[in-house]
Amino acid sequence: MYFDSLSAALSMDGHGPYVWSAYAICLVVVALILLAPRRRRRNILRRLSAEQKRQQHGQIPGNEGK
């Protein structure tokens, strides 16, 4: 490792806040673009599977509660 200690790695001779915040923002955005499609796909499958179960029970989808 280049740095002698954890605090040296965190401060990076004064550049630490810039470097670490850039990496933190990058991490958040990357996590978002990786998780969003996964969630969307699961929601669609869950919705469709629920719709089919309702149809099997003889209800018209989208008409529940009326």
């Binding site: 280049y2 790695a9 990076m12 001779d13 004064g14 550049h15 810039y18 850039a22 990496y23 990058c26």
Partner: peptide, 19 residues
């Protein structure tokens, strides 16, 4: 972030280059 030497002119801020 941790295993490269800093840039001789820009210091550690150059590490942002990797993203």
């Amino acid at each position: 972030l941790l295993y490269t030497a800093p840039d001789f002119r820009q210091g550690n801020s150059y590490r942002i280059i990797y993203i």
